[in-house]
């Protein structure tokens, strides 16, 4: 599949990857960088597409889904990572598998100064909370990073998050 109005090919490959890895719960706070995943999960009768009001809901929801035997992914913008800090105590102390994808703002080419503080803090904050971070800078990075994150989450009981750089998804000029 090639890039089109339907979104970039890597985003569709990412959706297929998640389905192949038995991830059937998609929870999210919307961001432009997650448009394809959100739209496809909403249109897919085989998965649950769960809109959240704030990102930490999704951290707790992921842990609950794992208790019940289902795999999930949390989609957030980097600015929402700060909302999750205390909820990561649940994944850490319970050694819950946690898989997240953060679309970045406030880094490569950011044009909105208000996005910079949390964008620059995203990876240090996640790492301080014990979340393993893998950064995808180009389309060819996406699946290898997701493969590594999914393995660490579901085989090594880790919290892992893939950061989709603005170099990949495109920097906003505002």
């Amino acid at each position: 599949m090639t890039a089109s109005d339907d979104g970039p090919a890597w985003a569709h490959e990412l959706y297929e990857f998640l389905k192949e890895n038995e991830i059937t719960i998609f929870s999210y706070v919307p961001d432009a960088g997650h448009r394809v995943l959100i739209d496809r999960s909403m249109a897919d009768p085989d998965v649950e597409s769960i809109a959240l009001t704030t990102e930490e809901e999704g951290v707790a929801l992921s842990a609950g889904a794992h208790l019940g035997g289902r795999r999930s992914v949390l989609l957030v913008q980097s600015s929402g990572v700060g909302n999750c800090i205390n909820m990561f105590s649940l994944t850490q102390i319970g050694r819950f598998p946690f898989l997240g994808i953060a679309s970045m703002r406030g880094e490569f080419g950011e044009g909105n100064p208000w996005q910079m503080p949390m964008g620059q803090a995203t990876q240090p904050v996640l790492e301080a909370c014990g979340v393993v971070c893998l950064k995808a800078e180009t389309p060819s990075d996406v699946i290898p990073c997701m493969t590594a994150a999914t393995t660490m989450a579901y085989k090594s009981d880790q919290a892992a998050m893939v950061l989709l750089s603005q170099r990949l998804i495109g920097a906003k000029a505002f």
Binding site: I25, E48, I50, E56, E57, G58, V59, A60, L61, S62, A63, G64, A65, H66, L67, G68, G69, R70, S72, L90
Partner: peptide, 11 residues
């Protein structure tokens, strides 16, 4: 509540 929502959807 959010944790229980995930559990309820899974089971």
């Amino acid at each position: 509540v959010s944790m229980a929502l995930g559990l309820a959807l899974a089971q």
